[in-house]
Design a protein around this nucleic acid. Sequence first.
DNA 1: TTCTTTTTATACTGTCTGGCATAAATTAGA
DNA 2: TCTAATTTATGCCAGACAGTATAAAAAGAA
Lengths: 231, 231
Amino acid sequence: MVQKKSKSAEGRRAPGRPRQYDPDQALAKAAETFWKKGYAATSLDDLVAATGMQRPSLYAAFGDKQQLYLKTLERYQQRSRAMSLELLADHPSLRVFLKRFYQAALDIYRTGGSDARGCYSISTAPAQAITDSAVRDFLAASIGGTDAFLRKQITRAQEQGEVAANADAEALAQLATATLHTIAVRSRVGVPRKQLMSIAAAAIDMICGPLVRQQADSQSGKSAGRALARG
Amino acid sequence: MVQKKSKSAEGRRAPGRPRQYDPDQALAKAAETFWKKGYAATSLDDLVAATGMQRPSLYAAFGDKQQLYLKTLERYQQRSRAMSLELLADHPSLRVFLKRFYQAALDIYRTGGSDARGCYSISTAPAQAITDSAVRDFLAASIGGTDAFLRKQITRAQEQGEVAANADAEALAQLATATLHTIAVRSRVGVPRKQLMSIAAAAIDMICGPLVRQQADSQSGKSAGRALARG
DNA sequence: TTCTTTTTATACTGTCTGGCATAAATTAGA
DNA sequence: TCTAATTTATGCCAGACAGTATAAAAAGAA
């Protein structure tokens, strides 16, 4: 659809037959297939059918099956991170951010219905992680990145008094990631969204402390829903 | 090795050529192969090589590849549950039990070294869960069983005053399962055992409350390491 | 038109796939 | 020794597999 860059960012077209596919759209279609069937069970014929590309075009554009899979994983990671950053645009409290974060995750995982699919990387990469070190390294880095991102938000909340200063931000971040992981797996087996949001809510209370009724609070904060720091 | 039951529990042998393999040992070898390579990437030739059985013997004993996989999953589940029950034999406190529980899990996941493999079901079943409803149902029931088992231990701890009476046992159990899930995935990508035990320790503190220094405590309990109930 | 460049389309290869048919081997009991 | 029962061993099949060689098509540039 959108005829993208031919080489230079300018509108100049390169010589040669123009490609009939959109690379990013093809990656998206390939990812859908891997997402549903898993890496090993997805054949090149499946990918040809999903992308509408011919086999040689697939190889020219993305390399072999493994390289294509890694590219779809990276695309997924980039989009997930971009989405997470968007949730921070209006500087929400940690509690509000985490709620958005898990809601956004569940939007992607499509829990509950027959179209449940879970998290792409957590659902498909572990099976390949032992025999394919590139997949293993990607997954390890991806999980570490999630930990680091969440720890950053928790540390900021600590600085602003929303989380107890003596809490272990690293441990809380790993707990938040653990919650994401369990939601990822449970959504893949069809657990309805409502139940998963209640798991997320419990985790948020663990991290931010349970919500307390409106009352005078000695420590100031900016968010509307105040949280009680844990001892 | 151990010539097992021929049909009746008695030592009576059935007529016909005796089988040269031990069914449980064959299941264990098949599971090892699926565990390492994943379900879809494991070929029947791999299974023949691993078990030492011939193809027709495999089919006669366990059915086709999918049925064999399900049988290895059930075997894994049964053994895991039996092991968990053993940890309760001396009626430990919840804190002590949970520590044992995660340690035992990591023994199975073999974290840290090059022989890391993660949790069998969590590492291999999700990839198949969309296209194979039997696998999906098994995994859903397995996760639900873990939740229920842990909730039972937490409820008992509540009755004995080790956990705050107003805590949500169901939510705490799901948090404990979430911790197991994140450890399962992280161990598959090679995160060392020490780091994973520290995640588990943080989760235990969340559930049981952090350990406090020896001091007079109004509420009685049986365990040596007293825990502070959360507000 | 003609040349060059790039992509598409067709077809092919040798290997591997899951599953099964068939026959040989090994035992218990008659 | 003979028969029935059970397992093992060999071999085969039709289809699917990943990956590639080769030629046709479609564009810009000269």
